[in-house]
């Protein structure tokens, strides 16, 4: 089975990719940020205390010894300790991952479910008003920075209208999270049968997800439109029309599937960004996800945390593009025969 073989081979490639990424991050972080001991030492500390702290942080050894130790720890599944949280980086990451995934999934599903039909509508009404409308709106969505869209949405829906809660994270301040099961608040509250908390979590999620959705929708709609316009002019669409198929069947059944390949590629790339932690977005909405964690790690030269994040993000990219290739093979039979 060539599909399974391809997946296995690609999964194997994660190992060298991760190794390369770890190595580059390891040395780059240390070369460019210098000694982080100062950040974690009181200014009045003696030299002995300073040396002690450096020892405690594992920064006293020569660089290559540190590197060797980090790799051997990693092989045992130990990501090392974060300087800032004092916890194991693996635990930190799995703690924040659900927040990023929940926001990313909801935002992207909305963006794709709205973007693809908009692209189709624009393409089949080419050079008429629905097309101009979609192209205008999506141009805005691509030209405006995500954080700005987020701020404007907060201004409209929280500050002015008061319909949605402010950007204070995944639950309103003072509300305890539901019992931890999956880390996805919508799922956990639903499983706990806590309708009120589900509603609260959903309301907190609405604005950041809408922001993410709008910025996903724009490129998805544009790529769908371009690729639909091309497919609509193909010989096989002319055949489908000549055989008497109706417009909607032609558009959505015969044309769309052919037009989806570039859209899938785009979504794969977007997914890489989104699940790698949309740093600014998470900052604006106080969202305790991976983006915030990574940003903090950079600011505080938190080496283990930064490396852990980069490993995770690179895995995610490899998996996202693997998913893209698998989807390619499912959508287009020509990809299945080498």
């Amino acid at each position: 089975m060539p599909l399974a073989l391809m997946i296995l081979r690609r999964l194997f490639w994660i190992i060298p990719v991760a190794l390369g990424v770890v190595t580059i991050t390891f040395f780059a972080a240390r070369v460019f940020t210098g000694d982080p001991t100062e950040l974690y030492t009181p200014p009045e500390a003696t030299d002995e205390l300073r040396a002690q702290i450096r020892e405690r942080l594992g920064l006293a050894d020569p660089l290559w010894v540190q590197y060797g130790k980090y790799l051997s720890d990693l092989l045992r599944g130990d990501f090392g300790m974060s300087f800032t949280t004092g916890l194991n980086v693996g635990a930190d990451l799995s703690d924040r991952l659900p927040a990023t995934l929940e926001l990313g999934l909801v935002g992207m599903v909305f963006g794709v479910l709205a973007g693809v039909p908009l692209g189709v509508i624009a393409a089949v009404n080419r050079e008429r008003w629905p097309d101009f409308l979609v192209r205008g709106v999506t141009l805005g969505g691509m030209a405006l920075p995500q954080f700005w869209i987020g701020l404007v949405l907060i201004w409209i829906f929280f500050v002015t209208l008061g319909w949605l809660p402010g950007p204070v994270g995944r639950l309103p301040i003072g509300v305890n999270p539901p019992p931890l099961l999956t880390g996805f608040l919508l799922i956990d509250t639903a499983l706990a049968g806590d309708g009120e908390k589900f509603r609260l979590a959903l309301r907190q999620l609405a604005l950041p997800a809408l922001t993410l959705g709008l910025t996903t929708l724009a490129p998805v709609a544009r790529v769908t439109r371009a690729s639909m316009v091309e497919a609509l002019q193909s010989d096989y669409i002319r055949t489908a029309i000549a055989m008497g198929h109706g417009r909607r069947v032609v558009w959505f059944r015969y044309c769309l599937r052919n037009a989806l390949l570039p859209v899938v590629t785009l979504i794969g790339g977007v997914a890489g960004h989104v699940f790698g932690g949309a740093v600014l977005l998470e900052s604006i909405f106080g969202w305790p996800g991976l983006g915030q964690y990574a940003l903090q790690a950079i600011e505080r030269s938190d080496f283990a945390a930064l490396q852990g994040f980069v490993i995770y993000a690179s895995l995610l990219y490899v998996l996202a593009f693997l998913a893209v290739d698998v989807l390619y093979m499912l959508i287009d039979p020509r990809m299945r025969t080498p």
């Binding site: 010989d235 096989y236 029309i241 055989m243 020509r334």
Partner: peptide, 23 residues
């Protein structure tokens, strides 16, 4: 539409391109 296919049908040049590649 009621005429296309049912009453008047058409064979195209380059049939490989005239058939849908994903079905």
């Amino acid at each position: 539409r009621a005429i296309r296919g049912r009453r008047i049908s058409m064979v195209f040049q380059d049939a490989r391109a005239a058939m849908n590649p994903v079905f």
